[in-house]
Design a protein around this nucleic acid. Structure first.
Lengths: 283, 283
DNA sequence: CCAAAAATTCCACTATTTGGAACACAATTT
DNA sequence: AAATTGTGTTCCAAATAGTGGAATTTTTGG
């Protein structure tokens, strides 16, 4: 009998490692030694849209040529990077293999899944599950009817906390002390005319979410996209996430979203109930 | 004008790093230094179904306690692992983020995608795209009608080459010298009564695939599942992959598969045609 | 509450990474 | 065609960062 109790599901609330500023060079001093440096290189390649060439990477990381060359060679050898015939580097296939395992083995996702389906069946719109990681939300799962949209379209993607329903819902579940830290780290940026761009406005919004139990995205991230969300968290709130029902503005009015608010909260509570027994029993 | 020509898509044909034997300890001597050791630890956690505790990991890697502890701490700090409240370790969310980028940015997948859709439209059955990595096939994409099946169900998953259509198709595209090396590394294992379990039989099958241009999976990996596949490769065959049309045996007869063989080859050729101009122009 | 097991910290030793400079290879330019 | 510049690769002494045995703290369970 190999049962393993665990809270799990992701880093608690570590500082956001990067925010990919326009010309962001040298990462914050990683104290993760050699590994940290290698991963920083990996991250540079990951944050570019096109494959990068050696000198290009060299410019973005402040390391000597010889060193960078060895790091890249090691990453390639390990399958984390792939070296193309034109000497450009792109992310390696081994990452996919790791991610597939990470996804399939994620306890939280597994627990939440049936509830996401139920929510989808009841609303008919796309349902998302995302967890908080620093100042980002990472999407863990989604359920939608139309197969047309690409598969990885959301899963694994990271979005800012301050302009997504799931993000704001998750924030609302944080203890005040942690919330302050996270808000201080947010790099606000205007995506649409409705985007919240000040800490004060965000705090006001969070107060309201705490009062009502629901967060809304009123086309704050992308024009034409709206959602209702609700927070999901572990008992001690060391781990926070959110679920949402999302739809296109032309089809989903704010009133429709409000009518689903209860369902979303219900689903979130159901997930937390299922999660509780899996957590460390006490303390 | 930022055009980047690249072959890309994955490690060429590196030795398979692991095959997850039942009680496989110490990995083959990694010469990737500190990084290699850290990734080996990550791999140990990845290859377990349940989250692992410290001592459990300690037993599987031959490293001293102190060392392992620091490696784990670093991996956690980097978000590659996550430390659960009960002291068990599971794969971290950052891997999902990396994988989402790796997938979306993969040139080969992008090129192949429309052809996979066409093939799906013509056959009505599930279409897979997988690339060869050592003695495994890693699935890069899939197109299917029924949304019911879970998203990551295949993508990122690794299957053995010798008992999958895509795998055998890919093998058939390898230069003989490389093929010998790969076959020598295969750890044959019987999955069903139809599984090919000897190198000789596999070679015979590959000869036939080379002659006809199509590979079949005759319920060799899983009873009740059949497919037709065709190889896809770069001009110099340093990169090989395969595509397939898969269906349940009760619905898809061998005759039906044979009737699709031409379509699959057509799609494979179309992908290679689209790929050619993107490769390094000459040599 | 106490004992046993598991996880974490510590620090002298040493293997690995570092990084400057020299080398090879292409693609342009003169 | 020869020279030049821009890139990528290799080398090795010096320095740093990783190692691993043992001691310490925390957690588990009887």
């Amino acid at each position: 009998m190999d049962d393993r109790r665990s809270n799990d599901t992701g880093a608690p609330v570590p500082a956001a490692p990067e925010t990919a500023g326009p010309t962001a060079r040298s990462r914050p001093p990683t104290d993760t030694g050699t590994l940290g440096k290698a991963i920083a290189v990996l991250d540079i390649v990951a944050s570019a849209e096109a494959p990068m060439r050696f000198t290009e990477i060299l410019d973005r990381c402040d390391q000597p040529r010889g060193t960078l060359h060895r790091q890249l060679s090691n990453l390639v050898e390990e399958g984390l990077l792939s070296l193309n015939r034109d000497h450009s580097y792109s992310l390696g296939l081994r990452l996919l293999k790791f991610a597939a395992k990470a996804w399939a083995g994620n306890q939280f996702r597994t627990i939440a899944e049936p509830h996401l389906r139920t929510l989808h069946d009841r609303t008919g719109e796309t349902v998302h599950l995302g967890v908080l990681r620093g100042t980002e939300v990472i999407y863990l799962d989604k359920v939608e009817s139309r197969q047309a949209v690409r598969m990885y379209s959301q899963i694994g993607n990271a979005s800012p906390v301050f302009c997504t329903g799931v993000g704001k819902a998750a924030l609302s579940a944080l203890p005040d002390a942690v919330l302050d830290t996270v808000i201080a780290q947010i790099a606000f940026r205007r995506f649409t005319e409705h985007t919240i761009v000040t800490a004060a406005d965000l705090r006001a919004e969070i107060a309201e979410i705490r009062a009502t139990g629901n967060a809304y995205d009123r086309e704050e991230h992308e024009i034409g996209i709206r959602c209702v969300a609700a927070p999901v968290h572990s008992a001690d709130r060391s781990f926070v996430a959110g679920i949402s029902v999302t739809g296109p503005a032309y089809r989903v009015s704010m009133e429709a979203l409000q009518s689903w608010a209860g369902l979303v909260r219900e689903a979130a509570n159901a997930i937390m109930d299922d999660m509780a027994p899996r957590l460390g029993p006490r303390t």
